[in-house]
Design a protein around this nucleic acid. Sequence first.
DNA 1: TAGTGTGAATGGATTCACAGCC
DNA 2: GGCTGTGAATCCATTCACACTA
Lengths: 227, 227
Amino acid sequence: MKSSNIPAPAVRRLSLYLRQLEALWLADQRTVSSRQLGETLKLTDTQIRKDLAYFGQFGQPGIGYDVGELTTKIRRILGTDRTWNVLLVGAGNLGLALSAYRGFAKKGFKLVAVFDSDPQKVGKRVSSNGDLSIQSISEITKTVKEKDIRLAINAVPAEAAQEVADILVTAGIRGLFNFAPVNLDVDPMVAVSAVDLAVQLEQLSFQVGMSQSIEETEATRRAANAG
Amino acid sequence: MKSSNIPAPAVRRLSLYLRQLEALWLADQRTVSSRQLGETLKLTDTQIRKDLAYFGQFGQPGIGYDVGELTTKIRRILGTDRTWNVLLVGAGNLGLALSAYRGFAKKGFKLVAVFDSDPQKVGKRVSSNGDLSIQSISEITKTVKEKDIRLAINAVPAEAAQEVADILVTAGIRGLFNFAPVNLDVDPMVAVSAVDLAVQLEQLSFQVGMSQSIEETEATRRAANAG
DNA sequence: TAGTGTGAATGGATTCACAGCC
DNA sequence: GGCTGTGAATCCATTCACACTA
C-alpha cells in the first residue's frame, strides 16, 4: 500500500493547514501561497508543498492554492468530508466539558452517545445536549452497532481506562481518543490518539527550565565579554 | 548551549517513562530494565537507553534502572521536582473541567488563579477549588507577579485566544498551554504547547479511513489469490 | 547471564535547488 | 516575477552492533 509511506508528521500538519484555510476562507481570502501559509504556521514553504504533494497536485504555479478547493481536498484526505458518529465514555468533569465542546460538531464529529459506570448518572440527560442521556457501560456494544459508531473518546479515570478500552475495541470501535494518563494496550488495527494533560505541562516545564538556563548562560557570556 | 541538541521526541518520551515509572513504583516494583519499559510503552529498549543517555548515566549494567532513583532524576530533568504555579484563563466548560482535574496537582502543578472576561463570572468561587475565585482579565499582570506564576493554560474561545496570549506574554508568562484551535503568534522565548481536540479526532479519522482502505486492498488481494 | 551505554550505520523527514508554468 | 512540484542533498532520529559491567 503506497499510502503508508506518507510521513505521520505530514498528516498532522495537514490538519493545521485545514484549520488555517478555514480561517482564510472566513477572512474572504480565496487564494494562498505556500509561503504565506508557512509564515502564519511557522513552517517553510517547501515543507507545505512537499506535504501536499504526497496527496496530489493542488496548486497553480504562479498563483498558489485555491483556498476553497484545497479545503475540500484536505477534508477528503482526512476523511472529514462526511460526518463521523462519536461516543464518549466517562461523564465526569472532563467528559461533560468535552460533550459541550462545539468544535467537534463544526468539524463533522457528532457525539451520539455518552456512557458512564456510575448508576447514579445513568439515565440523566446530558445538559449540553438535550437529545442525549447517559447510558450504562454495558450498552456500549449494542449502541456501537445501532448507531454505526467508529470513534470513541475515553475520558474515564486512569484505573478504568484499559478496561473501557477493551470493551470499546471489542465493540468494534476503530479509533480511540484517550485522555487517561495511561498507555493503553489495544489491537494495533485500532488507531489511538492520546492527550495527557499533565504530560503537556511537563513539557512546558522542561522548555521553560531550559530557556532559563540558556538565558543565564547568555548572561554569563555577556558579562564575561563585558568584563 | 549543549542542551539544544537533545531531540524533542526524546523529551516527550521522558514524560512517558516517568508516568510508567510512577505506575511501577505503585505496583511495588523497584527495578526495571529498558527492555521491560519498552515492552509496555511499545518502544525499543535501545531507544529508551539512548533517550536517557542524553541526560546522564542512570542504569546499572546487568541490573537495569532503580525505579525510585530514575523517577527522581527524570523529575529533575523535566523540572517537576518542584511546584509550579499555574493560572487558567477561560472559565467555560473546558476551563472549569481543567480546574477540577486532579492530575495536575499530582504532578506538582498548582492552579493558583482563574480568569475570565465575563463580568457575570468574575468573583464567583471555583467550585472544585474553594480557595479560588474567578478574577477579571485585567488582573492578570498583577497576579502573575504576586504569585510568581510562570505557566498559563489558555482555555478561551478561538476569537479571544490571541489577545489573551498577548496579555499573558506581556505579563511575563513563560509557558503557554493552548486549547484554542488557532495558531498563536508569540515571542519565541515563550514555550507553547497546544492541544486542538478536533485536530486529534481528524487524525483518527484519517487513520481509520486508511486502515479501512488497506483492509479492502488485502481483501481484494486475497480474493485474487483464491480465484 | 542479563543488562547498560555508545559509536557507527541506517532510515526518514526536511531543506535545497531548480525545472517548469502562469 | 511569482509560484508550484520534485529529485537530490542534507540533516536528524532510530536502530544496530558490540564493548563493557554487575
